[in-house]
Amino acid sequence: MSGNTLAGADREQRVSLRADPDLVDDFDDWADEHHGSRSAGLRALMRRATGDDRTWSTPRQPPTEELLSDAYRRLVDVARATGSQSGYIRESTARRVCAGGKAGLSKDDARDRLLRPLVERGYLRRVGNVHGDTSYQILGWDDAE
């Protein structure tokens, strides 16, 4: 079974397979140690098998549009710098990080012109918590779909 998680040229495909449970357990141990997760380990092996020399350091290939790509990379950098284990960034932080930049956007414009398109294209997921705060989760970060 496979499904697309991103639209257009930035599309990714879901891959599933059946395997012996002992093999899966052994692979998970290896993948956790070397790549941090099963998905990251499988992606690394697929890149190695196909000779794909990945040139980006983000969970997913950045968008092709310069402003969206810059915003996405900045969000990933902030999540890493803050030690996020699951790629979550508060909305206020995401708006501040994306504001300014090459286009000199306000925080409101950053939400409308950068964060919303990144959500629509499958790079981010907008989530709320019990306190009514909004955050964004970077998809592809340690198995976040």
Rank of each mutant, 00 (worst) to 15 (best):
P62D: 07
A19Q: 08
R113D: 14
D20Y: 09
R121G: 15
R80C: 14
N129L: 13
D52P: 00
T134S: 13
S57W: 05
H34D: 07
L23R: 04
G87C: 02
S92R: 03
A71F: 03
S86E: 00
E91Q: 09
Y88E: 09
S69M: 06
D22C: 14
G128W: 05
D25M: 09
K107Y: 12
A9E: 06
G132V: 04
P21H: 12
D29T: 11
P63M: 14
R47T: 03
S106N: 05
A144W: 02
R80P: 03
G100F: 10
G122Q: 04
E33F: 08
P63V: 08
A31L: 07
E91F: 11
M1L: 13
G51F: 02
R38A: 10
D25Y: 03
P63I: 09
G104I: 03
A40S: 09
G87A: 06
V15W: 07
P63H: 10
R48L: 11
R95T: 06
D112T: 04
R48P: 00
E65Y: 03
R18H: 09
R95C: 14
D10P: 02
D108P: 00
T134Q: 10
S69Y: 01
Q137C: 14
G3S: 12
Q85E: 11
R95Q: 10
S86K: 00
S92I: 04
Q137P: 01
R111S: 12
A19E: 08
V97Q: 07
D28G: 08
V15P: 01
D32H: 10
N4F: 13
R90A: 15
